[in-house]
């Protein structure tokens, strides 16, 4: 039995700190982060990978955490928006979004921040078209895309 529990443990690095959890086999990373790891900054908007509110970076790639099984995250480096509170690039992104009026109800913002952060690490100077393509997986019902794209284009 002890062996079995051992096998079910999943270890990953979350926001720079090692973490071990014992998830259910069908548990999504979103559930693990919100319910086991205290990551209230990761939002649940649709639970089917459509809205992007739960976006996190897994090994620097932005993905909706509701589509990832936690058991598949062993050994991964997971970053949520809260983990970027002191990251200079993320702070520049956050400040630019806020200044542009692109943070309205705010429910999409944490996911947008991760997507933008991941984009800038791959593409230091994205054009507007690239930015809007990258943001396609992050719905903003307040309709702030144009303001976001404008803000992010100014950072490149």
């Amino acid at each position: 039995m002890a062996n079995r529990i051992q096998q079910n443990m999943v270890a990953f690095v979350l926001n720079g700190r090692p973490f071990s959890v014992a998830p259910d086999p069908d548990e999504t990373l979103l559930e693990t982060l919100r319910q086991r790891c205290g990551c209230a900054d990761v939002k649940k908007g649709c639970d089917e990978g459509a809205c992007g509110a739960c976006t996190v970076a897994i090994d620097d790639v932005a993905v909706p955490s509701c589509l990832v099984l936690t058991v598949a995250c062993a050994g991964s480096r997971i970053v949520t928006s809260a983990g970027l509170a002191t990251d200079p690039l993320a702070r520049r992104i956050g400040a630019a979004l806020a200044e542009a009026g692109a943070v309205q109800c705010g429910f999409c913002t944490a996911g947008v921040l991760i997507t933008a952060w991941s984009m800038f690490r791959r593409i230091p100077s994205p054009d507007r078209d690239t930015i809007s393509r990258e943001l396609t997986g992050n719905l903003c019902r307040c309709g702030g895309y144009d303001l976001m794209v404008e803000a992010l284009a100014g950072l490149g």
Binding site: C46, S132, R133, G137, Y145
Partner: peptide, 17 residues
């Protein structure tokens, strides 16, 4: 009954405003 099927505009649907 889901966001995947309900077509909220995305950043790619964005016209010039």
């Amino acid at each position: 009954v889901g966001m995947l099927d309900y077509g909220v505009p995305t950043a790619r649907d964005l016209p010039r405003i």
